[in-house]
């Protein structure tokens, strides 16, 4: 592998990792703050991709479709929290697992009924459709660089919101001691609704920005779900920073393993996770005590 190719592969890995982070961030946020294990998180990613495809067919405007989709996803998240999740806070994790598995079934069925089963695609927006020459043979599409930059931007924004704003303060407080936050007169219900909505929106947003790069197919949610869980667990459940580091790690390791050690590439992320959990049983940056 010469140096130029090495750099391209590194870029591939980072870009994949950043997208993984965007999907996983919502999952870890929801778990960290609310202690909810949302297995339907992958379905939200799928919903985002299908929504943007649908609105793109109607409007022919990618940006507009993306905004509508994100807004709808936020609404969907709030609705789910208010009607279902809300009643399960006092129950154990396993009931939440059951509920969210039921939700996966429902979302998969609705996807099939509403949008059919054919693979779908969204074209890359005109403005970003160019590509940059990296080597004599390899080009890199501008859109993928844009997505990487966008993910970085969102990571920064999340960091700022959590560490510098009042809501962020409440979120951090809620993570470490929710009873105390409640006692201090904060409306924890509203906070939870907001966080869950934001989590769903982040997943859907990942689906939206990924839509032009992937094929939109039934079952795409479950496939990404497991990888996301790996990322979240490696990073430490509930830690945004951990998810960021873990996502990049998984992205890069997976990319290089698939070329250098193809024999074990199907297992590599699981091996990575197992090794990390053996050394640090709580993940890299656990925020749970």
């Amino acid at each position: 592998m010469d140096f130029a190719i090495f750099l391209v592969q590194l870029l591939n890995g980072l870009q994949y990792g950043l997208l993984l982070f965007l999907i996983a961030s919502g999952l870890t946020l929801v778990f960290g703050v609310m202690g909810i294990l949302n297995l339907a998180h992958g379905s939200m990613y799928m919903v985002g991709a299908y929504l943007v495809w649908y609105f793109f067919q109607l409007t022919d405007q990618f940006l507009l479709s993306a905004l509508i989709s994100a807004a709808l996803a936020l609404g969907l998240g709030v609705l789910i929290e208010k009607t279902l999740i809300h009643r399960l806070y006092k129950r154990n994790h396993l009931d939440q697992v059951l509920l969210t598995i039921g939700m996966i079934f429902v979302f998969n069925a609705l996807q099939s009924i509403l949008w059919g089963d054919d693979p779908l695609g969204v074209p890359v927006p005109e403005l970003l459709s160019g590509s940059i020459h990296l080597t004599e043979l390899v080009e890199y599409p501008v859109y993928r660089l844009f997505v990487a930059a966008l993910c970085l931007l969102l990571a920064g924004a999340l960091y700022l919101v959590i560490n510098r704003t009042r809501i962020g303060m409440l979120i951090r407080a809620g993570e470490s001691n929710r009873e105390m936050v409640e006692c201090l007169g904060v409306n924890i219900n509203q906070l939870y609704t907001l966080v869950f909505g934001a989590g769903v929106m982040l997943a859907a947003l990942a689906g939206v920005v990924a839509a032009p790069m992937i094929s939109i197919v039934p079952g795409m949610g479950e496939h990404v779900l497991i990888t996301c869980f790996v990322v979240v667990v490696i990073g430490g459940m509930g830690s945004i920073k951990g998810a960021f580091v873990a996502a990049l790690l998984v992205g890069v390791v997976d990319t290089f393993a698939s070329v250098l050690v193809p024999g074990v590439s199907s297992m590599i992320v699981y091996i990575l996770m197992a090794v990390i959990l053996l050394i640090k049983p709580e993940g890299l940056f656990s925020s749970q005590k």
């Binding site: 598995i101 079934f105 429902v106 998969n108």
Partner: peptide
């Protein structure tokens, strides 16, 4: 899947 999912949700609730 739709019926199955709804049934599971109803039972857990």
């Amino acid at each position: 899947l739709l019926l199955m999912g709804s049934m599971i949700i109803a039972m857990v609730m």
